[in-house]
Design a protein around this nucleic acid. Structure first.
Lengths: 231, 231
DNA sequence: TATGTTGCAATTGTATACAATATGTATTAT
DNA sequence: ATAATACATATTGTATACAATTGCAACATA
């Protein structure tokens, strides 16, 4: 293997956290995981420290390590700050993106679209995550990327929570989001800052509406609703 | 002692980095520091990991730990993103501050002013740092605070670099900044969001102008300048 | 002289044993 | 029966020995 066990463990944990395989708020067992990934507790703890620094985990002294929780309060904060950061990152990305980064973004977008065609919702969420993570790298602003990455963690986890089962109507929205990615790539290539900001806001609103729609779905048929209320 | 050696080491390193006692870009010796702070390499490395996660240090695999550098590029990024984050944090702080946090802020401001009266520039920079750090806690937005705290690290370090020797004219600006702090406290107390944003922008511009003034000072007397150029 | 190879010293990374702290359970006293 | 204490167990934190990697320098070779 090219990369070492520590990296493998790090990547695996990131994936498991983003995919909600390990639920928000659940505590991690050092001994168990160290055996699972074939390393001793010392390097595993270092992985924990790094993941905690990146916002995946939260550590309490003498009381172990938990996966960062997602309560109502953090969701409120999320919706409050995401648009600003996303827009700022997008503008900087368009200004500073290198060709390698653009290639990286394009190939990620290809994989994202392919996952969409095959309805691999889990993969989609991951490639979407990577897409926006690369945008952060393009921006290259070490003061903003930490915020972006923390937002992305919870954005991806919400995706997993909220739009796992896709019905036929919602599929259209997925393709719209996918097309927006393509448009964003084009805007970055042209260094069109106003276009990328516009697109990013539209992209955000689409995502937000989907989440909102899931949280507050169309009400049931009145008759049924009243019957249930009167039971 | 109340807190343990690990915390003490963490605090000490933070102080030494912010005060430029350890210069940006310099590498840290694990063995040396572990002896200095009386702990073994394992917990010291954990301190390193945490400080790296917070942006104080940067680690490269198999190649040790360095204090985060401050080059021209990072300064550009700093000036680009600081106002946005500061303003957003200030608004949220005014909306969400608790009474304990306000008390904390007030006592920090008292210490800041006292340090100013005694011309303890080092202490001033530290209390100023804490002042704005508390504002971040007041905002209570885990997606924005990491960016704020990264900005504050370099903002404080720039203060140390740039306005160490204070001349009589610049003293007035210091008092202006100090008064702005008081006004900010008042605005937070009144939950006056538009006032706090205004004040924060003014506060930022004052700080920025001082740094700019230092980087690009008033030119020398023309005669002298021409003589030197013709030598 | 420039380049590449080999070996040594220094530094970083990992495993494991041990210490400290927390948690759960049983026992005792009221 | 309940509360408090003490003990046992599990988990986290630290020290240290050992392994792996890097960087440097001396040497050889083209």
């Amino acid at each position: 293997m090219i990369i070492n066990k520590k990296h493998a463990c790090h990547e695996a944990l990131v994936h498991r956290i983003l995919s909600l395989d390990i639920q928000p708020g659940s505590t991690l067992d050092e001994t168990l995981l160290s055996e699972e990934y074939g390393l001793s507790r010392t390097p595993l703890r270092e992985v924990f420290q790094k993941l905690a620094g990146d916002g995946y985990l939260s550590q309490t002294e003498n009381r172990g390590t938990k996966v960062s929780s997602m309560d109502l309060n953090s969701m409120r904060n999320f919706f409050q700050s995401a648009p600003m950061i996303y827009a700022a990152i997008a503008r900087l990305a368009a200004e500073n993106a290198s060709v390698q980064q653009l290639d990286d973004l394009k190939s990620t977008q290809l994989q994202f679209r392919r996952a969409g065609e095959e309805s691999e919702t889990q993969d989609m969420a991951m490639y979407n995550h990577r897409f926006h993570h690369i945008m952060g790298e393009m921006a290259g602003n070490p003061y903003l990327t930490p915020s972006l990455n923390r937002l992305l963690i919870d954005h991806t986890r919400m995706s997993q929570m909220f739009y796992k089962p896709i019905n036929s109507k919602e599929r259209l929205l997925v393709w719209e989001a996918c097309d927006q990615h393509d448009a964003m790539i084009e805007a970055i290539e042209k260094r069109d800052t106003s276009a990328i900001v516009q697109l990013t806001i539209a992209h955000w609103e689409l995502s937000r509406d989907r989440i909102e729609k899931f949280v507050r779905p169309d009400p049931l048929d009145m008759d049924i609703g009243l019957q249930e209320a009167g039971e």
